[in-house]
Structures are given as C-alpha cells and as structure tokens.
Simulated assay, not measured.
Amino acid sequence: MNDSRDHDKRIATMTFASVYPMYIQKVEKKGRSKEELHEVITWLTGFDDKKLKELVSKKVTFAEFFEQASINRHANLITGVICGYRVEEIKNPLTQQVRYLDKLVDELAKGKKMEKILRSA
C-alpha cells in the first residue's frame, strides 16, 4: 500500500516538461508527428497548442497540468495495460489521468488509427 502512495506522489511531482520530449521522440521514432501527439493531448485535456507550450515552459508538475485540464468525457473508454498497470483499475485520479495520457501516446506510437485513439461513445 505504501508503494502505491509513493508512486502516486512521484507522478504528481514529476514535471510534464520532463516527459513531453520523450513523448515526441517516441511517436516520431515510429513515424507519427508532433501534430498528431498534440491532437491526442488536446483530445484528453482540452489544451490547445498555445496552452500546451505555456505549460511546458512553466515546467508544471503533472498535478498542476491535470488540475488545469478539462478531461474528455470519453476518457473512461481508455482501457488496457500501460507501464504494468490496468488503467481502468487505477484508484488515484491523477495517476489514472497520467496513465491515460501514456496509453494514448503508446497507441499513437504503435500506429493505431487516430479515430480509434480518440474514443467516442
């Protein structure tokens, strides 16, 4: 139980700016674009490119990042395993939101079609 709280705290205090370049690298290495990555992030968070750039430059934590986000109402349709965790079973809301983003980036990098990534009811 303690490990889970430590993990959640570590995720909350990690800066989005420290992970963002890795997201770009991951998708571009697999032939996808930064624009497609931004489309995925916008779908999940509601952030436009200007806001995303601002949050990266301010080096906000994931906690601050998701506090400002308007999570897509279909985000609960994101399921599956990422980083060894089944996203739909994660209890901590912030950790779940970060893993949603990780899952979407992973699907983009794996070549999944955008209409499948950007879920709808």
Results as ranks from 00 to 15, higher is better:
Met1His: 09
Ser4Gly: 08
Ser4His: 11
Arg5Tyr: 11
Asp6Ile: 14
Asp8Val: 10
Asp8Met: 09
Lys9Thr: 13
Arg10His: 14
Ile11Asn: 02
Ala12Trp: 02
Thr13Ile: 14
Thr13Leu: 15
Met14Gly: 09
Met14Thr: 15
Thr15Cys: 04
Thr15Pro: 02
Ala17Lys: 11
Ala17Pro: 06
Ser18Ala: 15
Ser18Gly: 14
Ser18Val: 11
Ser18Trp: 12
Tyr20Cys: 03
Met22Ile: 14
Ile24Cys: 09
Ile24His: 06
Gln25Met: 15
Gln25Cys: 12
Lys26Glu: 07
Lys26Asp: 05
Glu28Trp: 04
Lys29Pro: 04
Lys30Gly: 12
Gly31Ile: 04
Gly31Trp: 01
Arg32Met: 03
Glu36Asp: 10
Glu36Trp: 09
Leu37Trp: 01
Leu44Lys: 00
Gly46Ala: 02
Gly46Gln: 03
Phe47Leu: 03
Phe47Val: 02
Asp49Met: 11
Asp49Gln: 13
Lys50Ala: 15
Lys51Arg: 11
Leu52Phe: 06
Lys53Cys: 09
Leu55Gln: 09
Val56Tyr: 06
Ser57Leu: 12
Lys59Glu: 15
Lys59Leu: 10
Lys59Arg: 14
Val60Ile: 05
Phe62Met: 08
Phe62Ala: 05
Glu64Tyr: 01
Glu64Phe: 02
Gln68Thr: 11
Gln68Tyr: 08
Ala69Asp: 04
Ile71Trp: 03
Asn72Asp: 07
Arg73Glu: 10
Arg73Trp: 03
Arg73Cys: 02
His74Gln: 06
His74Ile: 00
Ala75Arg: 08
Asn76Cys: 09
Leu77Thr: 06
Ile78Thr: 07
Ile78Lys: 04
Thr79Lys: 15
Thr79Arg: 15
Ile82Leu: 03
Ile82Lys: 05
Cys83Trp: 14
Cys83Thr: 12
Cys83Ala: 15
Gly84Ser: 06
Gly84His: 07
Tyr85Ser: 13
Tyr85Met: 12
Arg86Met: 10
Arg86Cys: 09
Val87Tyr: 01
Glu88Ser: 02
Ile90Lys: 04
Lys91Leu: 09
Asn92Lys: 07
Leu94Ile: 00
Leu94Met: 01
Leu94Cys: 00
Thr95Trp: 05
Thr95Ser: 12
Thr95Cys: 07
Gln97Asn: 08
Val98Arg: 10
Val98Gly: 07
Arg99Trp: 15
Tyr100Ile: 01
Tyr100Thr: 01
Leu101Trp: 04
Asp102His: 13
Lys103Asp: 01
Lys103Phe: 05
Lys103Arg: 10
Leu104Thr: 02
Val105Glu: 02
Glu107Thr: 02
Ala109Gly: 15
Lys110Val: 02
Gly111Asn: 05
Gly111Tyr: 00
Lys112Ser: 09
Lys113Tyr: 11
Met114Asp: 13
Met114Cys: 13
Glu115Gly: 05
Arg119Glu: 10
Ala121Trp: 11
Ala121Asp: 12
